Simulated assay, not measured.
Amino acid sequence: MRDLTPDAHEPLPAPASVLGESPLWHPVEQALYWCDIAGFALNRFDPASGQHAHWSFATEVASCAAMRDGGMLLAMRDGLWRFDTRTGERTPLVAAPYDTALERFNDGKCDPQGRFWVGTIYEPRKPALAALYCFSGGTLQRVADDVTVSNGLAWSPDGRTMYWSDTTSHTVFAMDFDGASGQPGPRRVFARFPLKQPEQDLATYGGRPDGAAVDSEGAYWSAMFEGQRLLRLSPAGEVLAELKLPVRCATMPCFGGADLKTLYVTTSREKRPADELARQPLAGRVLAFRVDVPGLPATLFG
């Protein structure tokens, strides 16, 4: 395993999120979007101008996608919405298919054909009642279930493998993917990590798989929540490299910039101990690193 940690990291000049998530490099606007789930906000940063914008809502914004016909698709606790960033107008697409008092949408991403896949988090954690959905053609279809915290969505460069994780069980799954039909095959274990033991010191805990991204070589980058690191895994699930971070809780990476060689990483400060936050002032900020292997461009929805 190689240590990929560069000598320097660059936080974006934007305020810290409470729970930063779902970074998205907009392929048309050449700007970075990300969600602050616990802060009920959507953020946008334009590296060319250095301008940061944010929009506040009445409930959680868990993930987002750029829409082919303009605007942003937002996965919120109460359903999927079209959001016009110019006017601030929000238009409903489909209502939440679950009890919003116990469950909400979580990680979401477009497949190579432009369908939006989004999972849920079952907030009581037990039993494993969260699920994975696919939104296409105005219809939301339940595709898979039996997880607690749906995360880690990504596709291989050829689009024939779909990745999906259950953060609570510390497991990343891989599934054969039929792009024409949009149907994944049976899940298989791609990578599994040791569970955190009672009273285990975080210094000895490697973290659990949260959000993810795939680079142009087919390697799967996983944010290891509470592990203070990203892992780069081969298509066979082997750990190729580790990127150590200055904050305990990374939530998701994405590739951006004109050459897709800037790795943006969202982080969280939600419910973290005061002494940890004092030692890690960048918690909640979006970090940026330069990497050698570019990522894959995000697909527009629709």
Score class of each variant (00 low, 15 high):
residue 39 G to M: 02
residue 218 G to I: 07
residue 207 G to W: 03
residue 204 T to H: 15
residue 248 R to E: 14
residue 105 F to K: 00
residue 15 P to C: 04
residue 115 R to F: 09
residue 276 E to V: 15
residue 218 G to M: 04
residue 273 P to N: 08
residue 278 A to V: 06
residue 169 S to I: 14
residue 17 S to K: 05
residue 180 A to G: 12
residue 95 A to L: 05
residue 255 F to V: 02
residue 118 V to I: 07
residue 57 F to Y: 06
residue 128 A to C: 11
residue 166 D to G: 05
residue 151 N to P: 02
residue 98 Y to L: 07
residue 129 L to V: 06
residue 164 W to Y: 15
residue 169 S to A: 12
residue 252 M to W: 07
residue 263 L to S: 04
residue 66 A to K: 03
residue 39 G to H: 04
residue 91 T to C: 14
residue 66 A to S: 06
residue 237 G to Y: 10
residue 297 P to R: 05
residue 99 D to Y: 03
residue 195 L to A: 15
residue 263 L to P: 10
residue 221 W to H: 06
residue 70 G to L: 03
residue 13 P to S: 04
residue 231 L to M: 11
residue 267 T to M: 04
residue 93 L to S: 01
residue 161 T to I: 05
residue 1 M to A: 13
residue 47 P to R: 05
residue 121 I to M: 13
residue 4 L to F: 07
residue 239 V to W: 10
residue 49 S to N: 13
residue 52 H to L: 10
residue 237 G to R: 09
residue 284 G to D: 02
residue 48 A to I: 12
residue 200 Q to V: 02
residue 158 D to V: 02
residue 286 V to Q: 08
residue 75 A to D: 09
residue 71 G to N: 06
residue 3 D to L: 00
residue 242 E to Q: 14
residue 230 L to G: 12
residue 24 L to N: 12
residue 291 V to C: 01
residue 51 Q to Y: 12
residue 95 A to Q: 13
residue 232 R to M: 11
residue 115 R to S: 11
residue 261 K to M: 11
residue 238 E to W: 12
residue 80 L to Q: 07
residue 245 L to Q: 11
residue 94 V to T: 09
residue 170 H to L: 10
residue 109 K to M: 03
residue 238 E to D: 15
residue 48 A to P: 08
residue 84 D to L: 00
residue 234 S to R: 06
residue 83 F to S: 00
residue 235 P to M: 06
residue 56 S to C: 08
residue 4 L to I: 01
residue 32 L to Q: 10
residue 235 P to E: 12
residue 71 G to H: 03
residue 299 T to F: 04
